[in-house]
Design a protein around this nucleic acid. Structure first.
Lengths: 112, 112
DNA sequence: GTATTTAATTGTAATATTACGATATATAAT
DNA sequence: ATTATATATCGTAATATTACAATTAAATAC
């Protein structure tokens, strides 16, 4: 079907999944890393860096913007994108909440 | 096209993206949380917990297993799944490597 | 004004994902 | 051997994603 049954899950599970999904493409990881390093940049630069078509990158940027990970402001003819710091911190917290649920059990002998 | 141009990106970017993608579905988040809490469980239990069809859950479990986040061992008629601790730690490290690249810049006035 | 530049949008083809019924497999119980 | 139980796999329909060419929009330069 290709359609996710979001109503079966908690809001937190859906949010985590959506964020993970947004990060689930190497181009979007590359964009995030670029913005993390550069603090701000323009789409045109990314086109040359990534090797994807302009339309494709614009599409990826929109996805990251829609979920709130990045934000862009028009600056003359170009657009300046940057990480949304507040969101970034909350995402980090959310993911670490998941990661840290792991109490390295399996100390017992009956571990799989 | 629906096909990702992995060859344009670094191995690390592709790995991060693939892991994020694997976590990019609420059912798989729910499965991970369940395993993190229970330390081990069986597929049948998850079916009742999640409300998805057995075949669908088996499919999600396979995805998580293929990327290495979980592992399963046959135990009689059922299969006991659990988190792959080693992988889990490395994934945590990998994600935090990305998260921590954010030096909350934007202290300057010319921030977007 | 017209031209130029940058980025978003539209349309579309190829491929991937999600979900489930049906079936197959594999172990355990009788 | 037959039956019951638990999972995996197959086949398939509906939908989503990825990518790009073509076009549009919007700001600046001339």
């Amino acid at each position: 079907m290709g359609i996710t049954k979001s109503d079966l899950f908690t809001a937190q599970q859906n949010e985590l999944a959506q964020l993970a999904k947004a990060m689930g493409h190497p181009a979007r990881i590359a964009i995030l890393q670029y913005l993390l390093a550069a603090k701000s940049c323009i789409n045109g630069t990314l086109v040359h860096e990534l090797g994807l078509a302009q339309a494709t990158i614009s599409q990826h940027l929109r996805e990251l913007k829609e979920i709130g990970l990045i934000q862009g402001t028009v600056e003359g003819v170009s657009v300046s994108y940057c990480i949304n710091s507040e969101k970034w911190e909350s995402v980090k917290t959310l993911f670490n909440g998941l990661f840290d649920q792991h109490v390295s059990a399996c100390a017992e002998e009956d571990c799989c």
